[in-house]
Amino acid sequence: MMEILNHILTPEFGYSVIRVSTPIVFGTMGAMISSRAGVFNIAIEGIMLLSALLGVLFSAVMPVWIALFLTLVVAGFVGFLLGFLSIKLKSDIFLTGIAFNMIAVGGTIFLLYLASGQKGVSTSINSKVLPRVEIPLLDKIPWIGEPLAGILSNHNILTYLSIVAVIVLYYLVYKTALGLRIRSVGENPDAAESVGINVRKTQYIALIISGVLCGFGGAFMSMGYLSWFSNNMVAGRGFIAMAANGMGGATPVGGFLVALFFGFADAMTNSLQLVTSIKIPVQLIQMLPYLATVIGLVLYNINKRRKAMRIKLMLEDKNK
């Protein structure tokens, strides 16, 4: 037990929580904005995977920032495409999203092979990573400075951007006209339509933003978290993000906190594997984040139902 605590109560552990949370945070924000507009982006996983590969491929032949930009453009386009199929062509958005994810799994391997002749890993491609950023002066704070810097400083720039994304989305959703419209479209499309808001257009916009956010998450995977692309490297983070969004009540801050929790579970998985005193099977540890997701999802929904029930009872009481 002590050994586990020794692993967790270190700046390194805090650092790794933030690091592994980054893609989940981006994915969660992507899920948040689309679900707020009443369209369920189930292709988050696939868009992240595609973006991870594109980041590698683009950055091999062009400056890393342009590569990132192009990756985001493509990711946003995939979001648009999902919208086109589900809104315009009236496809089942779930099955379409599943198909997108399938195409992404096979398609990335296909593309990687075309580009490098390699299958599975992109180590032969000379791709670039996005820079890390040191927060100045943080370690100069007395007492807590050193560990704080250990946790917060020297992350990949996209990690900081993920936190910026949460803040930006908070303002977008709650403080701008577009946010108001997105929320109205998701909550009561009839109301939006009755005041002349173009429901479809608003949903397209939300899906494009969602795609771009997933693009950030994917780019982080191969240009920050790791410095290469490997087959199916997103490994369910897109789906976990969907769950995190549900548990976070489709709010930016709520989703962010749940995403951090999943990041914590993920980091625990890595740390527990280093613990030698108690032999916990590695597979059971790896199972934890997913198990936590299901349990969290169920508890969240039970709670939501209870609340709805309480409100209903309250209304009935009032009526008597």
């Binding site: 315009k88 009236k90 496809s91 379409t96 599943i98 198909a99 096979g106």
Partner: peptide, 24 residues
């Protein structure tokens, strides 16, 4: 040609089949 081509073929088939407005 890598075999993952099949994933693209299959995905496109699904997308077209579930697109209700395809040929609507």
């Amino acid at each position: 040609v890598p075999p993952e081509l099949k994933a693209i073929t299959q995905g496109v088939i699904i997308i077209l089949i579930v697109a209700q407005q395809f040929l609507a």
